[in-house]
Design a protein around this nucleic acid. Structure first.
Lengths: 232, 232
DNA sequence: GGCGAAAACGAACGTTCGTGCTATATTACG
DNA sequence: CGTAATATAGCACGAACGTTCGTTTTCGCC
């Protein structure tokens, strides 16, 4: 469906001016929405931060809902750049599964979005507010859950994880632990929560790892943290 | 500034009429806020649902922030009645710890609040919005985490749980799994998430249970669910 | 160098928000 | 019964919201 991220590779790079401001608007919109929420993301506020008129900014989207959808997709692009892509540099298997979790926790810790995980916040805000925005958010989080699940299955196919464990169950647990760390960090500034989540995940992984799998896991979570590559 | 819950203990219990409507306002406010958020809880909307004038309703609280604080405390009372109290009918130990988790999941599943766990939603909404409301929410969630932690320690003291496990770590994991189930249910209507959370929690409990502890745990999570007692 | 489209602007719209004031019902007690 | 306290209503306010409209600036292209 060619929705968001890739966009036009600047086929002729000619009418660039409109698209460029649109992009920089969305950059700011993502930042604002991650802190104030997608509903708190107000057109007037956004316009004044961009030093534009409300109407000038508004024309780029046509409605608030379109702005919200575009913002969600822009956040998705950031998430892919900051989490998915770095983790996928590691080849499929148990280590990639671990990297997905580890880098995710790093992405929250490092404040890629001001309000922690953009989608956790957005999901909670829209979960009882039906409409296209909610649907899009649910879709994106399902992508993430499917990615985790796929990584589990790959690790099993590689013989690094016992074939008996349920990929959906493991994906659920890891996602929950990540959301839990995000929650503790946002509400209390508790950085220890990241270590707790890592411990819990690693313990789970080690318990179900085969002999060949156990050798690729890091020895301890203490002090270890994947760098979130800038990867411009 | 004597802001809080206790307020006037109705020194002579005379002026009851105002207090009663205030209470029924809060009942509706909790319901509304759990679905639309504490910010989406609007005085005009609330007034029209109560068939009152905005100003008449407003007079009970004096400011929107006071209304929000009162609503949060009203939700806390419901939470205590629906989760804490039923679980505390079981005597301290491993079984009470399990009951706390099990009943919590039931309280979300049964829709005690329209928007799932009131405090999960409120925490996510206010986590980057400093002020008394945020502080109160954080305080209440800390109470819950402390209750879980205390239950772990009690189970250890009873000799039903290995003394080696870190109570804070276990409380973190259980809370995370509960929030994860709440998240999946709110966003996808996924009832299976409750079973997943129960499985994960039970597995954790069983792993660290002593022989005397293991005997008190339910045999399987499938089909088992604590009733959320009405407990008027 | 001028033309036409794209982009940004400024002002106004109808609502709704939270919050004051003032007056009228309702109630409790001497 | 009367009076004082309490509770609710009515109305208006300034601000902010999303949105529309007509105009003006900007800029690529012939």
């Amino acid at each position: 469906m060619s929705s968001g991220a890739a966009a036009r590779p600047a086929a002729k790079a000619r009418k660039a001016h409109g698209e460029r401001t649109r992009q920089s608007i969305l950059e700011r919109a993502v930042d604002l929405a991650s802190a104030e929420g997608l509903e708190g993301l107000t057109i007037g506020r956004l316009a004044s931060e961009m030093k534009m008129s409300k109407s000038g900014l508004f024309a780029h989207f046509g409605s608030k809902e379109e702005l919200q959808l575009a913002t969600v997709d822009a956040a998705r692009a950031v998430f892919i750049r900051e989490v998915i892509r770095p983790a996928f540099e590691t080849k499929e298997g148990l280590l990639r599964l671990w990297q997905l979790c580890d880098i995710w926790l790093g992405y929250v810790h490092d404040g890629v979005f001001r309000g922690g995980c953009f989608f956790a916040a957005a999901a909670s805000e829209f979960d009882s507010r039906p409409g296209p925005v909610r649907d899009r958010i649910a879709e994106i989080m399902k992508e993430w859950l499917a990615t985790l699940r796929r990584a589990v299955m790959d690790a099993q196919a590689e013989g690094q994880l016992e074939p008996g464990v349920d990929p959906s169950q493991l994906a659920f647990e890891f996602n929950a632990l990540e959301l839990g760390a995000n929650w503790a960090f946002q509400l209390y500034g508790d950085r220890q929560a990241f270590a707790r989540a890592r411990d819990a995940i690693l313990e789970r992984l080690r318990r179900h790892a085969t002999r060949s799998g156990a050798s690729v896991l890091p020895s301890s979570s203490k002090g270890k943290r994947a760098r979130v590559s800038a990867a411009k």
